[in-house]
Design a protein around this nucleic acid. Structure first.
Lengths: 257, 257
DNA sequence: CAGTGGTCTAGACCACTAA
DNA sequence: TAGTGGTCTAGACCACTGA
């Protein structure tokens, strides 16, 4: 692979010029996913700069999320993860009635190995963003927290919040909610689900999210806040999900009316 | 504000410990939006480290998008931009019939000053992601590129692609598409819009997007790819939008069926 | 002007990986 | 073991900001 030289007359600082060269090599396909970049020592030699300058160039690409450094091995062009496409019908009742929670139904369709861990059920005061969306009586909620895997890669963190008076005493308060998941139990309890509202944002992860999702630097997360409404117009659940952005495409259908 | 000391016995490297202290000060509200962080010289002094180490701590927070460096002034806690909530009915026909394009209708509701620039109309081959979504005859498309502002801040880049045989000869091929925008012109031409499909992803911006949207380091973008279908089931437009993530909440309603 | 961050150098020692 | 990236030091010069 061809790397240029630094133009010392150029206003653009050397480390950016080096980053530009590497970026161009990636875009041109001279460096494909999984390929190793020149080492810091090689860049230092080739461009005649200090090691920290070469390092800064690589840092630039890491922040952009284009390469991943592996201690002791090298720096590699990022291998894009398999993308999961979330269709807007993923909460359709037919899936629940077949006894499958949304995540399992989707794993079956898409052919990935699903797993869930870090399941925790707690009770307490609702955070303000939950209180705004649930019409709460007592202000107390049941929280179900868990982490989702696709093919042994953590891809999503989720916390469901339900009014305590709805969830307490049902399987929703158990670690295992049974076939069809929380939504199936809600419908059995007489809360017929009618519609969901999803609020979608994106941001950089907190350090806790980064470690739980095993994210490299420079990888954003998609946050989806879903509120479930029953046929009486009551909001019965709020679900806060944090997804590794490169692993997802969310698909929504909108009627023009 | 109180900063701790470095624990030299701790495995966590000094620059991360410093970053942790600063992050905690921000989370605790000791440093609010717009406040200046201690300067590199002050951190160097306080913690007894080299300047580059203090700098690396700050770099950490910049990558997380929590602070913004201003050359010659200091490093400041990021001021979150005003958020725009995009409801899923924003393409409703009633808005077009009132002569307003979606962006203008929304500006009126939300009370921000709208502006559009960098409008460019070109003709050429469709990129592959467009070809997949438009059922193209000749493979040629008209592209309408532009940049949207809210209150003088650039917030979104958009490119619309339409089959050339649909757009050519109409106002869609002009810089000014007239009242109601592209969708109004499509309906006048007999393509009654029935539904839209939006595909939502998030990633770090390219350097071109970063400069056009005036983004700081560590700010992701939301990419929305919208395909418009008419009542005959034909896809008549694909719109590729890149939005500054912190400025948007996308809202979608899903029927449970 | 003094104080700020931006860039660069030339070293050093360390931890991790793979042969 | 040699080669890789991770961290740190103690300087240097520069460009930008604001009093």
């Amino acid at each position: 692979m061809e790397l240029g030289r630094i133009d010392r007359l150029n206003d653009r600082p050397p480390y950016r010029q080096i980053a530009d060269h590497l970026r161009a090599a990636i875009d041109a396909g001279q460096l494909g996913p999984g390929d190793r970049l020149p080492s810091e020592a090689e860049l230092k030699e080739h461009y005649g700069v200090a090691r920290m300058t070469a390092r800064q160039a690589i840092q630039e690409l890491r922040t952009e999320g284009r390469v991943v450094a592996e201690h002791g091995r090298g720096v590699f062009v990022r291998q894009p993860p398999p993308v999961r496409r979330l269709a807007s019908d993923r909460f359709a009742r037919e899936h629940r009635e077949a006894g499958k929670a949304a995540f399992l139904a989707e794993a079956e369709r898409s052919g990935f190995r699903p797993r869930v861990d870090q399941i925790e059920v707690t009770r307490g005061e609702a955070p303000s963003f939950v209180r705004e969306r649930l019409q709460l009586e007592g202000g107390l909620v049941l929280s179900r927290s868990r982490r989702y895997f696709a093919d042994d890669r953590p891809v999503e963190l989720a916390v469901s919040y339900l009014p305590l008076e709805i969830a307490e005493g049902t399987a929703i308060a158990e670690t295992d909610t049974g076939p069809g998941g929380v939504y199936a139990r809600l419908e059995e309890a007489g809360y017929t689900l009618e519609r969901f509202v999803e609020e979608v944002t994106a941001r950089m992860p907190t350090s806790e999210e980064r470690s739980r999702l095993e994210l490299q630097a420079g990888v954003p997360v998609i946050v989806v806040l879903r509120t479930a409404y029953d046929s009486a117009g009551r909001s019965v659940e709020v679900c806060d999900t944090v997804k590794a952005a490169p692993a997802f495409i969310l698909e929504y259908e909108i009627k023009a009316r």
